[in-house]
Structure formats: C-alpha cells, structure tokens
Design a binder for these strands. Structure first.
Lengths: 329, 329
DNA sequence: TTGTACGCGTTATCAT
DNA sequence: ATGATAACGCGTACAA
C-alpha cells in the first residue's frame, strides 16, 4: 500500500503539501496539485484511515449492536441504518448481542477501542454503566431510556390497538401471548393489550413465551391450543409467534379468521405472503433504522440536539387473519 | 480514555514494561505485574486498537460484504460468520452491496483503508480486480471462483434434485422460475433443473425473474399463472419466490400439492411455518457462514491451506407442497 | 528484569 | 505556497 510519503516523493513535494491537498486545507498551487493528483493515481494511493483515526482520535466507524439479525425484524432495521450510514460515508461494525449484557459490554468495549464515533444499540439496559459511561453518542433503537436519544415505536399503543381491533371484530375468548420478560418492547405491547382488554371487561388468558426464535415458536403455539382450546382470538407478541400460531391453528383444522382471529406485531415481510395473510401491527422498521442513523450522525456532528427521541407511529395492517367490520367505535 | 502512558506512570514503570505485560512478551517481575494490574484496573485501561493496528499493520477487523441482509437467506449466513468471528475475537465491518460492483468496490476499499485482515464476500465478480488485487485473504461465500477460497453449496445439484423430485412426484407441466441473470447461484440452480428436466424428456416453461425482493415476487407469481395456467409443478428460484407462488396459487383456488406442486430453494426459517409448509432444497446457511469464517481465520493465520474450497451439501427437505411417494428410482 | 527511543501513516503547527 | 516536525498510542529492538 502506498503511503502519503510515497506520493510526496513521487510528486516531488512534502507530505504536508499532499496532506493539505487531500483535505483541501490551506493553499496549494495549481501545478503542484496536478502533480500530486497524478502521483496519487499512479500509486493508487488511498489514505490510511487507521493513521487518520489515531491522530484525530475519531474515525468514520460506527457501532451497531442488535439482538439477533436472524430475527426477521432486525434485518430491516439494520438495512435502514446501513443505507443512511453508507450515504454519509460511515462504516458499521456490527454485532449480535443475544440480549446478553456480557456480550453487549464486550462489543461496546471493542467499539471504543476502535475509535468508533457513535453507537446504535438495541438493548434492554440502556441505563447500565456500559452505556452511561460512554463518551460518544449513543442512539437506542427499538428501545428507550428517559431523555436519551432513541428511536422506537409506541409498543403500548400497538398493544392497545391490537386488542381493540380484535375485540371490535368479535373475539371474546382471547389469548394474549406475553413475549420474553426481559425484552422491553415485548412487555410494552403486552401491557397495552392487557390494558385495553381490561378496560373492555373482556376476560383473557395469557401464554408466557421466553424467546422469539423460530424453533420455539411452534412449541408455544401448541401449548396455546392445548391449554385454551376454545380461544377465538390470539394477540401474538410478534409476527413469528403469530405465524406459528396460524400454522398450528390450521393444522388443528380451525378456520382462520372464522374460528380464531390472529394479530401479529411488526409486519415483517413474510406476513403478507402467508395464507391467509397476517393481520398485524406494523412498525416501520426500515425507517426506524434510517432515523436512528440520521439522529446519530447529527449527534456526532452537532453534539446538541433539540429533538432527541423519535417515536414512530404503529399502524394497524388489516389482512386476512381477522374478520371484516363495517365500522366501529 | 487512559493510555498505556497513564498506566505506566500510575504504576511507576515504563510503557515498555506495561506493553510487555499486556502482550505477555518478555519478562516482567511478579511485583511489577501486580502494580500494573492495579493501575490498569483503576484507570480502566484498555489498549487502543487503532494504535495497535497502525503499528502492526494489521487489526482484528474483518470485512463482510453481503448482497442484501433483508433477503432472509443472508441473516443466517451473517450470523454464522459473526458467531465464529466473535468466538475468535474478530470484529466485522458489514456492508450491503446490492450486487452492485461500484458499491462493492467502495466497501472493499474502505475495508483495506481500515486495515482489515480479511474479507468475506458474496459477489458475482470474484475475478474482478477489486478482489484479484487484494493483498489480504478473501473467502467467497455463497459464490465461487476457480481455485480461490470459497464456501458454497452445489446449486446445480440442487436444481437437478428439485427437478427429479418434482417429476418423481408426478408433475408433467412444469414451470421453472429462472432467477436474476446476474446472480450466479440462481443460474446454477436453473441450469441444474433444466438439465434434469431435459434429460427426462419432460417439457417445461420458464418464467424469468429479475430480483429476489419480496415485493416483486408477487408479480412474477401472478405472471406465472397467467401465462401458464395449467402448470402442475413449479420449481422456484428460492423460497421467497416459492412463497409468493404458493400464496398466488391458493388465492386462485388451486390445491397445493394436489393441483400444483411447489419446490423452493434455501430453506429459510419461514418455510416450515407456511401452510402448507414448503418443500425445498436446503442450503445450510448458518454452517456455511461459520465455515467461511473459519476458513478465513485459517488463511489469516497460516497463509497457506490445502483445502481452500468447501462445497456444502444441499438436501431435499420434503414438506407439504409436494405429494408423497413410496419409493422411486 | 526494566527503560529509551524509534517507527507505524496522518494531520496540524509553525517557519520559511 | 511549501516544508520540517511534533504528536496521536502502541510495540519492539536494543541498551542498561
């Protein structure tokens, strides 16, 4: 790899001049500029970002920490982040945390060891020292903490929405699937649903689940219909679980949505391709990712912002696992 | 951030001693070791990887370039890579290429500017200068190039398999969906299928598709049944397209697998959750990712390997979009 | 067993 | 308009 020295020698000037020209800081004569340009081209010189980073104590690197890229909600988020970063010439060091604090900590540590200028993280412990003590901007994505930069959607409202819509469509023996206890957004949705259901005076059952994995989802779906065979409405903690429930319901010969209605959460891409297609509460994942990246970049550049937390709207996506209503409410 | 200097001062020794202790290279007295350990703890010192990287001309950073993390096949790959890298304390700079050479080139360039020690890439142009001129090891993932390190599965054999299985199960008016022309694995599958079909003397139609996106998949599914309404067997270019075809077939009131059989490719996680669940040709994506990372790490450490290309087996996953047979062949 | 000093590739300061 | 040089934080000869 050619260095700035090589370029300087090749062009017959000093490294200082080359540096000035590259960063166009300070004067450099048109003629020397040309010479340097040629040298750069001929030697295929590109600045060493590591040396830059060492001197300036900041890089064009950014850290992205997500629970599990294998959960279909996160690729959308990640892509939104990446597109925005890429457009602004930032690069991303990526890691999966598995919602595990130790792993998070390790990642965050190596992020700072590599001089990243900012971090986007989806964590359940935004208030832990891991983040509190960080001297670079952090944006929490799909998670919140009071008064700290974050981009998330209103899970509670989403849960309420799901409950209202399923009740409005006639379900009366509802089962709510409560997502993993340690995952905040899952609990928000759950509470929203419970809130709305309690308010409406309709009784409901709860099935507790402990992960969002594809393989386990089937187990809970089976448990659901074993314990509560007369369920006529399921509010799932996300689309994966909803998909498993749908699959199981059909396997048991139930008609969806006639016998049982199902509402998911997230609106991951596959939801519309199921048969029947899945009614769900949509989070605008891609846009959330983009917004988070944009916010982080602003934080990196300005250091102070007025609008630090962005709550994105959730929307009811009516498809075929719920019945139609004319109008209600 | 504390530097090695701070630690040295705090412990009353020289930076060299601290360095030696950290990397345990050379002697260091037990007493001084203790003092240094305390200093490190108290100052919360962690080595600056950037300075390390600059001096050693190599980092613990690795580049991962995938077409689109939003395509459900890739998260599995990525996770495999990440798990293996993480276990070996390597970090990943991640980018989406969109199968676009310019983007690829930009990413690869910034990878080297950041001193990455190796690259894993899923590209259609492994022979381009972008990769040929790289001075660090590259492993091609889900793609191949003669004699260069790569991890992929036998798409051609997979295509053949799909054709044989669908024929063995009685389809006689088959439509093959030909994936995007510029994506190698898609063409391999296609050719494998065509090969087997031609060999069996069974006629077939072809529908050309130009991406693997969720949104467009539906369009081709519709086109398929408009142009070839009597199709009784579909070999899709991947599970996304297959899912769209399934969805469309059901929408048209066709019975699957009685009226039309469908075979996908990849075995992405959702396939088993569809109703009917999708018969497909499985690629062991997670393991492929792991294998690629393992191979890259060996390349980074050894520089010469005997076994440079790893072909993973594809397997026929019989589920419910195909009919049952007792035995055949 | 420990310390001094140089170099990794840049940028920025200060002369010239 | 340009050049010499210190500094960024670390690892390693080499000297002590």
């Amino acid at each position: 790899m050619a260095t700035i020295r090589d370029v300087a020698k090749h062009a017959g000037v000093s490294v200082a001049t080359v540096s000035r020209m590259i960063n166009d800081a300070g004067y450099v004569h048109e003629d020397t500029r040309k010479k340097i340009e040629t040298a750069i081209r001929e030697l295929r010189y590109t600045p060493n970002e590591v040396a830059r980073s060492l001197y300036k104590r900041k890089s064009k690197l950014t850290g992205l920490l997500l629970p599990d890229i294998t959960n279909p909600f996160f690729p959308e988020l990640a892509r939104g982040v990446e597109d925005e970063m890429q457009a602004n010439r930032f690069r991303i060091i990526f890691g999966n945390s598995d919602e595990n604090s130790k792993k998070e900590k390790e990642y965050i540590q190596t992020f700072v060891q590599n001089n990243v200028v900012g971090v986007i993280a989806s964590t359940n412990h935004p208030d832990s020292d891991t983040y509190r003590k960080l001297e670079i901007p952090v944006v929490f994505l799909d998670r919140t903490a009071d008064n700290r930069p974050s981009v998330y959607s209103d899970g509670r409202e989403g849960g309420r929405m799901a409950a209202q819509e399923i009740v409005a469509r006639g379900s009366r023996r509802i089962t709510v699937m409560q997502g993993p206890g340690h995952i905040r957004p899952a609990q928000d949705r759950y509470q929203g649903a419970v809130e709305a259901l309690s308010g409406s005076g309709i009784s409901f059952n709860v099935i507790q689940t402990s992960s969002f994995s594809f393989t386990e989802a089937g187990t809970w779906a089976r448990e659901l219909f074993e314990k509560h065979p007369d369920t006529d409405g399921v509010i799932a903690s996300n689309d994966i679980v909803a998909t498993a429930v749908l699959h199981e319901a059909l396997r048991l010969g139930k008609k969806v949505p006639e016998d049982v209605q199902i509402i998911g959460f997230d609106d991951v891409p596959l939801s519309s391709l199921l048969t029947p297609s899945l009614t769900t509460i949509r989070q605008p994942a891609y846009d959330m990712g983009k917004a988070a990246a944009r916010l982080l970049i602003q934080l990196i550049e300005n250091k102070d912002m007025t609008q630090k937390t962005i709550q994105m709207p959730v929307t009811f996506i009516e498809r075929d696992t719920t019945r139609k209503v004319e109008h209600y409410g």
